[in-house]
């Protein structure tokens, strides 16, 4: 028994002695983060990458709580809440990393590199083929009576992508749109992946959800289809930033640059995202051109109204 404890102690010691550690706080899907981290570690074998992964809401909460306690841990932030990053930037809490990777479109690195888009994801309409005969073409089509009781979306309190759905569609059609969806039986699930599982298993027929996740399930054989609405799929900003408090900023910016490397960009495409670098492959089965609707995250008041409408508890 003593030997076991010694072994454990050595294990922990070993972790702390690795050539630098990088702590990543992210809302990226676990399997996707893992693939990227694995690839990064093949390039820099001695580096220990710690990942905290949850929905954007929880990740932001964790960062806030740690800031409040004066003990922030993350070296890299990567989630779907641009507003929070802007807030951090305004307090001087983000490290500016100039976008010097050749070919990288500057518009993806606002403020001279305060944060960086490394790939694009859209909110689209997902369908279960077995439950839906006539696919919608526009966002407003979701209100058709034939979809009553079959509709779902993720929880904007948890999912940053859903927060963008509420902000963007609420801004375009008014909160009235969600009230009418509610009348039509729209259910709110916690997260995109869980929602996609339930959609794939026929619990729902139509869902407002992320395109890459649908593509991943389709690749596994799920009876799903996706519609990029003609009036615009919602482009969800999911930038990466290096906070000023990072204890290993060199390693963090190195990881950031790695995300723009051909290898990482190919991983993104393979996992259903649109890469940002010119010349990177397109995800399998994805349309060549997407009509994009720049996503806006719902503000606190809009979110409160949404919560009141659907009886969500924060």
């Amino acid at each position: 028994m003593g030997a076991q404890r010694l072994l454990g102690a050595l294990l922990f010691l070993g972790l702390s002695l690795a050539q630098g550690t990088l702590t990543l706080y992210t809302s990226e899907v676990l399997a996707d983060v893992n693939a990227l981290v694995e690839a990064f570690r093949r390039e820099k074998p001695g580096v220990e990458v710690k990942v905290f992964r949850s929905g954007t809401g929880e990740v932001v909460a964790k960062v806030r709580a740690e800031l409040q306690a004066g003990n922030p841990q993350a070296d890299l932030l990567w989630f779907a809440n641009e507003d929070f990053l802007k807030e951090l930037a305004s307090k001087g809490l983000l490290r500016r990393i100039p976008p010097t990777v050749p070919g990288y479109p500057v518009q993806y690195a606002p403020g001279g590199g305060l944060y960086h888009e490394v790939r694009l994801l859209y909110n689209v309409i997902g369908l279960n083929r077995q439950r839906i005969a006539r696919p919608p073409a526009l966002w407003q089509d979701l209100l058709r009576p034939e979809y009553r009781g079959l509709l779902a979306m993720p929880d904007p309190n948890f999912s940053g992508a859903a927060l963008a759905t509420v902000g963007t569609l609420g801004g375009r059609f008014g909160m009235e749109f969600f009230a009418r969806l509610k009348e039509s039986g729209l259910k709110v699930e916690q997260s995109n992946p869980v929602l996609q599982q339930k959609l794939a298993r026929g619990e729902y027929g139509v869902a407002i959800t992320t395109d890459f996740g649908l593509r991943q399930e389709i690749a596994k054989g799920a009876p799903l289809e996706m519609v990029y609405p003609r009036d615009g799929a919602i482009l969800v900003p999911t930038p990466v930033a290096v906070p000023a408090w990072s204890k290993s900023p060199e390693l963090a910016s190195r990881f950031l640059r790695f995300l723009l490397s051909p290898e990482a960009q190919a991983i993104f495409a393979e996992r259903g995202y649109y890469p940002v670098m010119p010349g990177a492959p397109r995800p399998k089965g994805a349309p060549e051109r997407v009509v994009a609707l720049q996503g806006h995250f719902a503000d606190a008041a809009t979110l409160e109204r949404f919560n009141a409408l659907f009886g969500l508890r924060r």
Binding site: V29, L30, A31, R53, S54, G55, Q190, S191, N192, P193, V194, L195, Q196, Q197, G213
Partner: peptide
């Protein structure tokens, strides 16, 4: 985490 991430 896996369950909440849809990795049923």
């Amino acid at each position: 985490g896996a369950l909440n991430g849809g990795l049923y």
